[in-house]
Design a protein around this nucleic acid. Sequence first.
RNA 1: GUGGUUGUAGCUCAGUUGGUUAGAGCGCUGGAUUGUGGUUCCAGAGGUCGCCGGUUCGAGCCCGGUCUUCCACCCCA
Length: 458
Amino acid sequence: MAQKPSIPKGTRDFSPAEVAKRNYIIETIRHQFEVFGFQPIETPSFENLETLMGKYGDEGDRLIFKILNSGDYLNKVEPEVYAQKDSAGLTPQISEKALRYDLTVPFARYVVMHQHEIDLPFKRYQIQPVWRADRPQKGRFREFYQCDADVVGPGSLLQEVELLQLYDSVFSDLGLNGVCIKLNHRKILSGIAEVIGAGDKLIPFTVALDKLDKIGQEGVMREMSAAGIGQAAIEKAMPLFSMAKDKQNSLDVLSEFLKDSIVGKQGIEDLKFIAETIRTLELNSTSLEIDVSLARGLNYYTGAIFEVSAPEGVNMGSIGGGGRYDDLTGIFGLKDLSGVGISFGLDRIYLVLEELGLFPETVEESVQVLFVNFGEKEALAALPLIRKMRGEGIKTDLYPADAKLQKQFKYANNRNIPYVVLLGKDELEQKVIVVKDMANGSQNTYAWKDLQQFISTL
RNA sequence: GUGGUUGUAGCUCAGUUGGUUAGAGCGCUGGAUUGUGGUUCCAGAGGUCGCCGGUUCGAGCCCGGUCUUCCACCCCA
């Protein structure tokens, strides 16, 4: 035996039970995507490197998995570039393809390429793996699934409202209560930066503000200062810190704070509309919270931004996120097309459901009825009955070998199979089956011709 | 990418200052039970102590490297 095999860091194998649970989540999400009128697309697992580079910021560029060119790729490198040992300069010369980093940029590329064949507004969903060359942690993998729903076309705030309802529907179906959707607006952040006189430092300002929960007011102020934001500006922003804690009145406080900022006021109007509409429609299992300190999201968001956090007490980063991007397709040459979308982090939702014990028991039920194998003659007699049950859509199986009864029952027990059917010598003679209910141990006898009777109890 | 952490049976983990043949629980296999699982009792199998190298008379234990796990940054789902 050679070296033990292994898989790359941050990747995983999935056992049948895990796949069953993952499929349960995927099907729940897919169902609601379709109920909300989204259509599926799929895109290649790898794109041209230039399609992806520069879309996620410097940090994102670093985390993109690049694919080495085929053949004698070093041969084409200019000697000067090679000699300089400059990785950034060398990369485009030895790699022209890269693994998909998210689903949004490929979607934007798709819209531009297929603009003449899609009807706007186009509501698409996409459930596929993405890859990031990140250092793994709990709930952070190098290969993971995103489940995205986006709308492109004429912009309307009703779409934001619908997407929030979509979040709510999915988490309700999954039985995951206490999920909190945080809501903010890029224009509010711009307005704040403008009002405090740090308009040119928007990104570092928002990145620092986002850490308020984590490092506190002092930490945020220190980080802003380190980012080159002036002391006067930071002090002007101070009311925001206390406001972030008092989430009820945040819009009123913000209105006052941003009264001189046109952009800022637009952001407030948007959020007011979204929050009030949601309030009248009511959410089922999730809560909506306006949070000025929410600043995450990729560089392309321009309007509302969302982030979904797991219920309190579960230590997990965000399990979903999204927002509006007014000009995503602009970078691919198609102007004035607005989009808004959300994403579900399948792998993290899985971990949350697992931790809270929220997977339905039936999810792992691969077989409903197992026929015991008593030998060739009995097994052959069972086959027509099994075929009939399978024809009715019942997950039915015959134990594949004439093993000890004890072993077959143990197998059924370990697999959580609820019913075991006995068809041995006696049953064969009398043309009956004995059905054992594994939950309570009770047994019932049915004639072969009355199989339907048994089926109807399932 | 930076700093730290982890790895021993299929799983969860013990393993003393470095000292014979590395343990437990669960699981697995067989038996008590030749037509009955989930409870009980008895017996058994199962380990290159992540990998490579070093120190030592002697390494699961000490040192270096490497891979992996998890954590804090960074960033993110």
